[in-house]
Design a protein around this nucleic acid. Structure first.
Lengths: 217, 217
DNA sequence: TTCTTAATTTAGACAAATCTAAAAATAATT
DNA sequence: AATTATTTTTAGATTTGTCTAAATTAAGAA
């Protein structure tokens, strides 16, 4: 069993691993609001417990054991977020801090029952995927935004057009990678799409919609 | 704000205060699974924070501030227990440990929303009362067990007959102070009462039932 | 009252997680 | 390649909560 603090380190290393490999000491220090020296100390400890691979001055990567632990914390965090939004009517931007605490509650039974109670959600309120109890993420597939129907929700995960004018246009609209959108209406007349992006309405042309890739969920 | 550990001490002192006043160092040490020396240290700290009144060798009592803090933790503990039993189908004897962790989650919004979601329960699954957010407990009144109807539940809070044979009889049946009972059936023929006590059926005569006091809830 | 026992407190040490300041290693720049 | 800058690590100190062992106080018994 790991301490609250160890769990936080593992979780942060897991998230940072998606950006850079291996993860640097300073990157962890920034995220955890601590100093590089403290990170080094903790990394040594995690390394002794075989939760991370660590080579001096080279940064860390999670071991299989560490990764599974981290994914389990992510699972708990996201399930609690669903609970807070779906059952307790929290807004999607109010849930993070509370979930940061709830994710450390130790009880497998609790989490399995919560999962069942929430009807086995596949994504959290931000659209991030919820791994199952074995640490597996459901396979996700890209769909063109132009293929979505009214009420469909998903996250922007890529584009199929890489020209600078197009990307600048998206940037200006706020349609950046990872953002979550909901289709409010597909206008029959011109095929343009009415979206909800961070509580704001937005209309984009069918041409634009055709080149935005969405992971539906 | 208090630490996890400080909260636990306050909670334990609160519960022990109902038995003896002031609370002794050793009593706390037993409950918290620690040593008397550690308790002394912590008590000094709580005393400096004005959460307890402390006189050397005389034990501790909670200050008003300490009491309110403790009651708030009890409130959270009991609300979570209701959640676990009512929503996640935990059995009443499986909830304690998990609630011991959940009670320390810091978020007033969370607790108010949980309270609402559970429809403002007045008692936890063991029949213990849940204080409101201001620390007030709902007024409770005694009723003779013989006055209860089918399906009524409550806790044994006293007797109106203090003879030794009677008390020994109750002891043998397991009908001790604080125990929770549910009336399954009042037999019309002789007025005897069929009870559920810790998942076990039990029949007691009307004479016995007349002298057991219940706080209904 | 005096002796004995039990409860409590002090003193000093320890583990976990953190910090500051200085040293060492790596990366970037000229 | 040499120098500078950045990153990382070490060494030693600090805080929180705990411990053991010894000293002190209170309570009970003779």
């Amino acid at each position: 069993m790991q301490s609250y603090t160890e769990e936080n380190y593992l979780k942060v290393i897991y998230h940072l691993s998606e950006i850079s490999h291996p993860v640097q000491t300073n990157a962890i220090a920034d995220r955890i609001q601590t100093k590089a020296a403290s990170v080094t100390d903790m990394i040594k400890k995690l390394s002794e417990k075989e939760l991370v691979h660590y080579v001096k001055y080279q940064g860390v990567t999670l071991t299989e054991k560490g990764k599974l632990t981290a994914i389990n914390i992510v699972r708990k965090h996201r399930l609690w977020e669903v609970f807070l939004v779906d059952k307790l009517n929290f807004k999607w931007d109010e849930v993070h801090e509370v979930a940061e605490e709830l994710e450390h509650i130790q009880s497998n039974l609790l989490i399995e029952r919560l999962d069942e109670f929430l009807d086995y959600p596949k994504v959290d309120p931000h659209g991030d995927p919820i791994p199952d109890k074995n640490g597996n993420f459901a396979e996700m597939t890209f769909v063109k935004l132009s293929k979505l129907k009214n009420g469909d929700k998903g996250n922007i995960t890529g584009v199929s057009e890489h020209s600078s004018p197009f990307l600048k246009h998206l940037e200006k609209l706020g349609l950046t990678l990872g953002k979550r959108v909901e289709v409010i209406d597909v206008v029959e007349f011109d095929g343009s799409v009415e979206l909800l992006l961070e509580q704001e309405k937005l209309n984009i042309s069918r041409e634009v919609a055709k080149h935005i890739l969405i992971t539906k969920n």
